[in-house]
Simulated assay, not measured.
Amino acid sequence: MSSSLAMVEALLQEFHQPATPNIRKREIETELIAFRGQTSAWQISLQVAASIDTNPYLWFFSTSTLEHWISRRWTHLTANEKTLLRETLWNTYANLSVANVPRRQRDTFAQLIALIGKREFPDDHPNYIVHCLELVRSEKFVLGITLLRITSEEVLSNRDCVTTERQSYFHSW
């Protein structure tokens, strides 16, 4: 796992070097896309995403890999893997320091959690909205409001075609 992570980090560093020619950048993109499709990619990416203080290129690539798995490969995950992904993202997000973590990173976490919430609420994760509201009522108010706003945007968007019935259920909260 660490060798894959080291390879991805090296590719990202090379990609972002000003001297890297466009032909090489396309090759790197192909390699990164291949990594993203590997069955262990989401697990490696989850570890990276949970450590906020990592290389920013690696962190953002990891979160985009998680978004890929949540949006396009969710059905390939087992129930335990879905739970691990959901709980790790939630716990990391709920423990973020609003003062010390850049807004873009907080919003990225909220986006990932909202994507999962949109897929799982109410059937597989009935407490999703309750957890959001608990954040609003705590000292993590900003995180709760951010998560509710992004969840609302996700539910109302046409991506993934949320049924009218599910939209109504979200709105009833």
Rank of each mutant, 00 (worst) to 15 (best):
M7P: 01
E9M: 05
L11G: 03
L12G: 10
L12F: 03
Q13F: 12
Q13R: 14
Q13D: 15
E14K: 11
E14F: 02
F15Q: 15
F15A: 13
H16R: 05
P21I: 09
N22S: 15
I23P: 00
R24S: 09
K25G: 07
E27D: 10
E27I: 00
I28D: 09
T30E: 09
E31V: 05
E31D: 10
E31M: 11
E31S: 12
E31N: 09
L32W: 01
L32F: 03
L32P: 12
A34K: 14
F35A: 13
R36I: 05
R36C: 14
G37L: 14
Q38M: 10
T39L: 02
T39I: 05
S40P: 02
S40Y: 13
A41V: 07
W42T: 10
W42A: 10
Q43M: 10
Q43W: 02
I44Q: 10
L46Y: 11
L46S: 05
A49R: 09
S51G: 02
I52R: 07
I52A: 01
N55K: 12
P56Q: 06
Y57L: 13
Y57I: 06
Y57M: 11
Y57W: 10
L58G: 07
L58S: 04
W59M: 12
W59I: 04
F61S: 09
S62T: 13
T63I: 13
S64F: 04
L66A: 13
H68P: 01
H68L: 04
H68R: 08
R72K: 14
W74S: 04
T75C: 04
T75D: 14
L77C: 02
T78V: 04
A79D: 06
E81H: 04
T83L: 11
L84N: 15
L85S: 08
R86S: 09
R86N: 11
T88S: 07
L89I: 08
L89K: 06
W90P: 06
W90E: 04
W90N: 03
N91H: 12
Y93G: 03
A94E: 06
L96W: 02
L96G: 05
S97L: 11
S97T: 07
V98C: 01
V98W: 06
A99M: 04
A99V: 08
A99C: 01
P102I: 07
R103Y: 10
R103M: 05
R104Q: 07
R104H: 10
Q105N: 09
Q105S: 01
D107T: 03
T108Y: 00
T108R: 15
F109C: 08
A110Q: 02
Q111R: 14
L112I: 09
L112R: 00
K118I: 03
K118Q: 13
R119Y: 00
R119G: 07
E120A: 01
E120V: 00
F121A: 04
P122V: 00
P122A: 07
H125F: 14
P126F: 07
P126C: 06
